[in-house]
Design a protein around this nucleic acid. Structure first.
Lengths: 342, 342
DNA sequence: GTCCCGCACGCAATCGATTACGGCCATTTC
DNA sequence: GAAATGGCCGTAATCGATTGCGTGCGGGAC
């Protein structure tokens, strides 16, 4: 294997400018006040050589990589790209950069990225994935790298958590439907083990109870958080003859699947059955009828996570307070909900 | 700012095991054949200390980061996540990891990531973005880091390119429609300057010509590659009274927008107008009617790009051949196309 | 008992940056 | 004219790993 042309080093610059590496470093960092001649010589040498400082060497010396790791459940799940983009923008603003890992719903992959990022010496970690095993969590909490969890709630671990107010969010959906006269409502749950599943169904139950809807009038079905799960669950629901007038879904993708099943059964949304999703992915506004949904503030979550980490890195005291931040969700009424049929 | 607990170094391990750092390094790398006692002592020390080698230090010494940079047009564009996932999987298999940059359609952001990745000393770069300026290209080609371009075609630059056969793909769409009896067909173009725009419209024109459709029977409108552009362009088309029986779109998102506009105009897909998209994003199968589309083999493109780079890194000769690989596209017939109205 | 050979391991240089410390020279002050 | 002061800049240590080269020890052959 042949050597590729080696990039210029600070030594090369120093030699060409006729100064020491220390001076080059100082000029580039803007430390001290060098003689104008010296500074100019350095700058010229840098340009002539096309010198770019090695982040690797700098990281080694500084013991900081100015890099944040972000592990998401699945980048192909339309929920995440917006969060990733926002986190990345926030990081850029604070002079960090993000390295991304997509677990693709696989625990092994999640742990692989965890190892990778720790080995790469990221300064902090954002975990937006429920794919981590308990041992991984233990290990992570014992490790020196600051962690913040997004959109998941590891059971009772002393970790800062940034998540949506899932309970309140589902309540928004139910209240909206109840306001439209619905009383018989189904809930399609997400993948079992997905951390948002429990709080959302809990919010659904509580909101129904508060609205005076008897337990016998509600029905819960297990989906999988994917299109197919929503379609299948709804098809079974309709085939079983249970007559609900509205369906609340764990997320938008499920809801879109549900709408397709409803149409396939010859019924109309929202005339016969209203459907509400959750997340507010782009496709929610594209489908016909456009999906009424409870929006998660994904960008805010990504931004907050990065800002929290950056603050913790500047001031480790800050890392002490492992509070849980719940970001409110927002009801977006579109076309998939309407008055309950008489 | 307080120091965080420092991770164990190879020095710590060596001291605890009573050997030199050289031995620790060799045992961990499986080089030479150490005495069983020695090896055991090292392994034990590693476990007791929870030692993880610093990728930063290793990269500095090895002059290789085993990292590949991947710059995409926009991670929020549903086309890219699948490509990213595939590239990442392929990279993992070859013991590389990917660092991602999403340009968000912004030239400055794209160049920012370029700088970032070069500074981080990635071993190679995959550019899946048309956002780079000409100077950036010049600079990139002069730099020592191997580059492969995906899904874009920098005008005549000596760079390996992996792209879909856009011309052939649009032809598939047109042939499908012609086979269904359509003669008056509209084409909604993508964002001006997007590299796939030209070859696709070119393929459209040639296929129409070959099918004997006179130029007067086809119409081209400018979209923007987004939902809104497809919706607007189609609304204008319908309002203008031009009567086409089919619309071919630059991509799926545009097509989904087009379908919404058609429905809003009181027409039916595919009874009145057939619609064909391009890309085959997940949402194409979700909408009603499900979108007929020409699929890009996104995963293959991602995988190929990584494999090409890895090969070029092992054998710089390989980097010499800057060929263009065109991956065939695949027609997926769903529900949005049907026989031309009489 | 001596010599030699080879194996397992340690020493130390190296990668490319940052920065504490100290030296040199010019200027000011008496 | 000598001493004191201060501004620039160079020397060298350091970050944590890898690896060429050399050393010492043990065993086998005579």
């Amino acid at each position: 294997m042949i050597e590729r042309a080696a990039p210029a080093t600070i030594r090369d610059v120093a030699d060409r400018a006729g100064v020491s590496t220390a001076t080059v470093s100082r000029v580039l960092a803007g430390i001290g006040n060098p003689k104008p001649d010296t500074a100019a010589a350095v700058v010229r040498a840098v340009q002539e050589l096309g010198y770019r400082p090695s982040g690797v060497a700098r990281s080694l010396r500084m013991k900081r990589t100015r890099t944040l790791g972000l592990i998401v459940t699945d980048i192909q799940n339309p929920f995440f790209p917006e969060l990733v983009q926002a986190a990345d923008s926030a990081a850029r603003g604070l002079n960090y950069s993000i390295i991304l890992g997509s677990a693709a719903y696989d625990e092994h992959r999640a742990m692989h990225y965890l190892d990778l990022m720790v080995d790469r010496r990221v300064d902090g970690l954002i975990i937006a994935s429920s794919q981590l095993s308990d041992e991984s969590w233990q290990w992570l909490l014992a490790s020196p790298v600051p962690v913040v969890v997004v959109n998941a709630e590891p059971n009772g671990l002393p970790v800062p958590v940034i998540t949506s107010d899932n309970v309140g969010g589902t309540r928004l959906a139910v209240d909206h439907l109840v306001g439209l006269g619905h009383r018989r409502i189904a809930y399609i749950r997400g993948y079992e083990g997905f951390t948002a599943d429990l709080p959302r169904v809990e919010g659904f139950r509580r909101a129904c109870a508060d609205a005076g809807i008897p337990v016998s009038d509600i029905v819960e079905i297990r989906g999988d958080g994917q299109f197919e799960g929503g379609e299948r669950a709804t098809a079974e629901l309709l085939a079983s003859g249970t007559d609900v007038t509205a369906i609340v879904c764990h997320n938008d993708v499920t809801a879109i699947g549900a709408m397709r099943a409803i149409r396939a059964a010859g019924k109309h949304v929202p005339r016969d059955i209203s459907v509400v999703g959750c997340d507010d992915i782009a496709a929610a506004a594209w489908v016909v009828p456009a999906l009424t949904t409870v929006a998660q503030q994904k960008a805010e979550m990504g931004t907050l996570a990065v800002e929290w980490l950056a603050a913790a890195l500047d001031d480790p005291e800050h890392a002490g307070l492992a509070e849980t931040i719940r970001i409110p969700m927002i009801l977006r009424v579109r076309e998939s909900t309407g008055p309950a049929p008489a």
